[in-house]
């Protein structure tokens, strides 16, 4: 019987305590943020969308090699001897045309492993996180500043250079062979004499 009244008393008392708590919270400031209107400042070094500053990129492909999910795809073309591509921000000379620099943000796992090996600090994580699209293919971003025509021209030039090199090499090889043959013939001649 005593327990019965004690239970009732406790029920009422605890309900009143609970109501006091909710009453206090009715007037405390909301902790939520009205997201699209108000944006919370992200912490320093937060890892969101990747960005590549192509003025700094020297096309060394360190980031592509570091990427654990293969979301970076770079293609480079060697610059000609008389061409000057300028320097990266830290003074490293640029020797390669970076004709393709794909980053697939749909694959990216935001590990930032590509950021640390970069010798010039060209690739970095930005605090930009609103990049949803209606199509997955739009998440494939090409950072390269070369247009399709420029790229085609460079590729054409490289192909020709390679052909020329191959031709030169073949010529060199042939010449060497000839020289060998003539040397051998001369040897034979001298022996028979």
């Amino acid at each position: 019987m005593k327990q019965y009244f004690k239970n009732i008393y406790e029920a009422i008392a605890t309900i009143l305590v609970g109501m006091g708590v909710t009453w206090r919270h009715l007037f405390t400031r909301a902790v939520t943020v009205q997201y699209p209107h108000v944006k919370r400042e992200l912490p320093e070094r937060s890892r969101m969308q990747l960005f590549v500053d192509m003025d700094d990129c020297i096309g060394c492909m360190q980031c592509q090699r570091a990427c654990p999910v293969d979301c970076i795809d770079i293609k480079t073309i060697r610059a000609g001897k008389e061409e000057d591509l300028g320097e990266a921000g830290n003074g490293t000379k640029k020797k390669l045309h970076v004709v393709q620099f794909y980053i697939d943000m749909a694959k990216c796992c935001y590990c930032a492993d590509c950021v640390f090996p970069c010798p010039t600090g060209a690739i970095r994580m930005t605090p930009e996180y609103e990049f949803i699209t209606y199509d997955r293919s739009s998440l494939l971003i090409n950072f390269s500043q070369y247009s399709d025509e420029e790229r085609a021209a460079l590729e054409e030039r490289e192909r020709k250079e390679k052909e020329a090199q191959a031709a030169a090499k073949a010529a060199r090889l042939k010449a060497a062979e000839e020289a060998k043959k003539t040397a051998a013939a001369q040897k034979d001649e001298s022996k028979s004499e």
Partner: peptide
């Protein structure tokens, strides 16, 4: 609104 404010939210806005 009441539920939101009691949970430190602000509810429909």
């Amino acid at each position: 609104k009441v539920s939101a404010h009691m949970q430190d939210r602000i509810g429909p806005m």
